[in-house]
Simulated assay, not measured.
Amino acid sequence: MRRRSRRLLPATVVVGLAFQAPPVDYHTYRNARFGYSIPYPAALVRPQPEAPNGDGRRFVSADGATTLTVYGSHNALDHTAHQQLTMSRQSWQEKGATVTLAKVLPGGYVLSGTLHTSIFYEKASLQNGVFSTFIWQYPAAQKPRLDAVVSYTARTFRPGR
């Protein structure tokens, strides 16, 4: 009888594989008016109709607890990314949010924090007089599951014009 050699994976690889989240299936939303695009998880099964003015769309989970809102807007008041961040931060705080991250980036900003029992993450890009923005809002209990999804959309979001 021939003896087969078995290769064993190192324990750290086996443990790492055991705790990996299942792959997420993504679709892509492309906005014709402002030219931005963003991947969104197929699990957001209730995409809302595009806004009547064509600026964006909201995607909602089956239970309604998780949303991804994406929109474009003309920078008619010629705000800098810092000014827009300040206004957005103030808006969240007026709703009762605690802001934990507010950072101006080259050509945009990120803003994150908590609102009651939810986490929000907002990212905006300013290019050619247009702000392209997306906002995730989801239950804090979903943070371990959604961190990678939010990170992926933040990395792959393509601002418009």
Results as ranks from 00 to 15, higher is better:
residue 49 P to C: 00
residue 50 E to R: 03
residue 29 Y to E: 12
residue 56 G to L: 05
residue 41 P to G: 11
residue 77 L to M: 13
residue 129 G to Q: 09
residue 2 R to P: 14
residue 11 A to F: 03
residue 93 Q to E: 15
residue 96 G to E: 01
residue 12 T to W: 00
residue 70 V to S: 11
residue 88 S to V: 06
residue 159 P to F: 04
residue 35 G to C: 02
residue 107 G to D: 04
residue 130 V to G: 09
residue 91 S to V: 01
residue 130 V to Q: 14
residue 19 F to N: 01
residue 65 A to Q: 12
residue 58 R to M: 06
residue 77 L to V: 14
residue 40 Y to D: 11
residue 158 R to Y: 05
residue 110 V to G: 02
residue 102 A to F: 07
residue 39 P to R: 00
residue 59 F to D: 14
residue 78 D to R: 04
residue 23 P to A: 10
residue 111 L to I: 07
residue 50 E to M: 12
residue 52 P to E: 12
residue 56 G to H: 05
residue 20 Q to N: 03
residue 4 R to P: 06
residue 101 L to N: 15
residue 120 F to W: 06
residue 38 I to C: 07
residue 45 V to Y: 03
residue 42 A to T: 15
residue 93 Q to F: 09
residue 128 N to A: 11
residue 124 A to P: 11
residue 22 P to I: 00
residue 95 K to L: 12
residue 50 E to L: 13
residue 5 S to N: 08
residue 50 E to Y: 06
residue 153 T to N: 07
residue 41 P to C: 06
residue 95 K to W: 03
residue 114 T to Q: 15
residue 70 V to W: 03
residue 28 T to E: 15
residue 98 T to L: 00
residue 32 A to C: 05
residue 5 S to Y: 05
residue 68 L to I: 09
residue 49 P to L: 00
residue 75 N to G: 08
residue 62 A to G: 09
residue 30 R to N: 13
residue 121 Y to W: 10
residue 43 A to V: 13
residue 116 H to I: 04
residue 90 Q to Y: 12
residue 43 A to L: 09
residue 24 V to T: 15
residue 65 A to W: 02
residue 38 I to D: 13
residue 33 R to F: 09
residue 9 L to F: 06
residue 53 N to Y: 06
residue 19 F to G: 04
residue 88 S to E: 14
residue 136 W to F: 05
residue 88 S to H: 08
residue 93 Q to H: 05
residue 40 Y to R: 04
residue 122 E to N: 08
residue 74 H to N: 12
residue 22 P to H: 06
residue 60 V to N: 11
residue 80 T to H: 07
residue 84 Q to Y: 12
residue 72 G to P: 12
residue 61 S to A: 13
residue 157 F to N: 07
residue 11 A to Q: 07
residue 124 A to V: 10
residue 17 L to A: 13
residue 161 R to E: 14
residue 80 T to Q: 06
residue 139 P to D: 10
residue 147 D to V: 09
residue 99 V to N: 05
residue 93 Q to D: 08
residue 5 S to H: 07
residue 94 E to F: 02
residue 130 V to T: 15
